[in-house]
Computed example of a mutant assay.
Amino acid sequence: MSKDKVLLIDGMALLFRGFFATSIYGNFMYNDKGIPTNAVNGFIKYFLNALDTFQPTHVICCWDMGSKTFRTRLYPEYKANRSQPPEELIPQFDMAKEAMDGFEVPNVGVEDFEADDCIGTLANQLAPQSSVYILTGDQDLLQLIDENITIAIMKKGRGNYQLYDETNLFEHKGCTARQMIDMKGLMGDSSDNYPGVKGIGEKTALKLLKEYETIEALLENMNNLSPGLKKKLETGQDMLHLSRQLAEIRIDVPLKYSFEEAIWTAREEKAINSLGNMGIKIPLQDLYSNQETAESG
């Protein structure tokens, strides 16, 4: 009996990518109600391509549930550098979830947590018995790589993916999945707006982890460091620990979902009607012929 293949979708990543792929040219597309649809159009096309590429048996889509989470309570400046979503994108969040409902794909999101945390929790729960593929554009999710967990990073152009797993992560990034959390603790993350240890960048962080492997071992051996580096770590130790806490994707989110409901059995008529009600027309013939091929194989 073949192992289940689960596709976990970072809904936020796909929707933002779908939006900016066309909005940069001022092309928002509108349905007959005057609501922009460009992000959902792009989202669905990325989604269909991923189904064709990875041929999953189960699909789940994860979402943020607002900008306020446990991380913003820990550090109010977390992601405070990011602007509000463009006005044209705001109504498309619910539309994308509605589209997933039409494809009978569960939408998962939990208040106080990010989509990444839901993905991490699901991957951790499902990997022991399934092959898990995570579709995203966010390299923070590389820390989730483990046995049976592969990260598919979306590249420029639809259908281009960089796959990372246990066999190639170190070759590409110079560290293990677990060390990626310690890396962020040391160097911070400017896109998420937390600083790490002042004066330590990627090159130094990699060098330290290569030598000491973990932050704990590094701090136990600070007397072996140069005076300047030792002082940086001593001065920035509180922010080091906080930054690592912000960087670490949670795998204990209290989410509820049904694995049975995640089985990929989308019915063509329901999906077309759902998209049609939103004013979105995307040919689905190829998708369902591929599904029939997978089921007969």
Rank of each mutant, 00 (worst) to 15 (best):
V197P: 04
Q139T: 11
A177M: 13
N224L: 14
N168H: 01
I134A: 02
T121K: 08
K210R: 11
G185K: 08
I181A: 14
S191V: 14
L219S: 01
L122K: 11
Y194F: 15
R178L: 13
I145G: 00
T167G: 00
M187Y: 06
R178H: 07
T176Y: 04
M187E: 07
S130I: 02
M180I: 09
S243R: 07
Q139G: 02
D146M: 02
A123M: 06
E216Q: 13
I200T: 06
Q143F: 05
L163F: 02
M183T: 05
D182Q: 08
E211V: 12
T235L: 12
I151R: 01
I149V: 14
A177L: 12
P128D: 09
P128L: 09
K203T: 15
I151G: 02
D192L: 06
L141T: 03
P128K: 08
K173S: 09
E171A: 15
K210G: 15
E213R: 15
Y212T: 12
L240W: 04
Q143P: 03
D165E: 04
P195N: 05
K231F: 07
S130A: 15
E202W: 02
M222A: 04
G185R: 06
I181Y: 09
S130C: 15
L209D: 03
K155N: 12
T176I: 03
T176R: 11
M183C: 10
V132T: 08
F170P: 00
T214D: 06
D140Q: 04
C118T: 10
D140G: 10
P227W: 02
G196C: 12
Y133R: 10
A205W: 02
L126K: 11
K207Q: 15
V132C: 04
L135Y: 04
N193T: 05
Y133V: 14
M180P: 02
A205L: 09
L126A: 11
Y133M: 10
L218I: 06
E202M: 12
G201T: 10
L218E: 00
Y212L: 09
